[in-house]
C-alpha cells in the first residue's frame, strides 16, 4: 500500500514544476506538457554486482499518467484521482491521495509537493528534494532533479544505499 504511494510521489516528481518561490525559475522550465516521454533507468541494488537497466515511456494526460516499462519486461502503472492501478490489478487501497497528488501537479497545484519535500538548490541545473516525514523519509534519503531547459534526470537515493537514475527524453511526437 505504502509502496504505491511512494510510486505516486515518484510520478509526481517526474512531472514536477514550481514548488518553492526560490526555485521557481528552474522548476518552471521543467513543466511537462501532455505527451509521451521516453526514459532509461539504471538501478543500483545492494548485493548486485551491476546496475539493472530498464526503459519505457511516460504517457502524461491532464487527468492521468501511465508509467510504461518496455524492457526487460512490459509493465503498465496507471495513476489518476482514484489512485494507483498496477497491471491487471484493482486500484490499490489507500492510493487516492497519490492520484490527487499527481493531478495537482498536472493542474499546477504545488502545495502537495511542498508538503512532502524540502526543496533546495544542489548545483547548476539541479534541485535536491528531501522527504519531510514518514513514510518517505524511511526509504528515500533524497531525490535529485536535474535539467537545463527541461527535466532531464532524476536520481533516487534510498536510505539503505540503493540508487536509481532515470534519464528522461522527449516528448515524442
Amino acid at each position: 500500500m505504502w509502496l504505491n504511494r511512494i510510486a505516486g510521489v515518484m510520478m509526481a516528481v517526474l512531472v514536477s514544476h514550481q514548488v518553492d518561490a526560490n526555485e521557481t525559475t528552474l522548476l518552471n522550465r521543467w513543466t511537462l506538457a501532455p505527451g509521451h516521454y521516453p526514459f532509461v533507468q539504471q538501478k543500483w541494488i545492494k548485493g548486485l554486482q551491476r546496475p539493472l537497466r530498464s526503459s519505457g515511456y511516460l504517457a502524461l494526460n491532464e487527468q492521468s499518467l501511465e508509467w510504461v516499462t518496455e524492457k526487460p519486461v512490459l509493465q503498465k502503472v496507471h495513476l489518476d484521482a482514484h489512485g494507483v492501478t498496477l497491471q491487471h490489478q484493482q486500484v490499490q487501497a489507500g492510493s487516492e491521495l497519490i492520484g490527487q497528488l499527481m493531478l495537482a501537479v498536472v493542474q499546477h497545484d504545488t502545495s502537495f509537493l511542498a508538503k512532502h519535500f524540502s526543496i533546495s538548490k544542489l548545483q547548476a541545473g539541479c534541485l535536491k528534494m528531501q522527504p519531510k516525514a514518514a513514510p518517505l523519509n524511511k526509504f528515500y534519503q533524497q531525490i535529485q532533479l536535474c535539467g537545463e531547459t527541461k527535466l532531464e534526470q532524476i536520481e533516487l537515493i534510498e536510505v539503505k544505499g540503493n540508487r536509481s537514475l532515470i534519464q528522461l527524453q522527449g516528448p515524442e511526437a
Partner: peptide
Amino acid sequence: IDAAWLRLVSPLPLPDDIIQ
C-alpha cells in the same frame, strides 16, 4: 521470474539485503 523483474526495475524501493 517476470514478476521479480517487474518489481526490480520499478522505481519502488526494496528493503535492504533481501535480494541475495
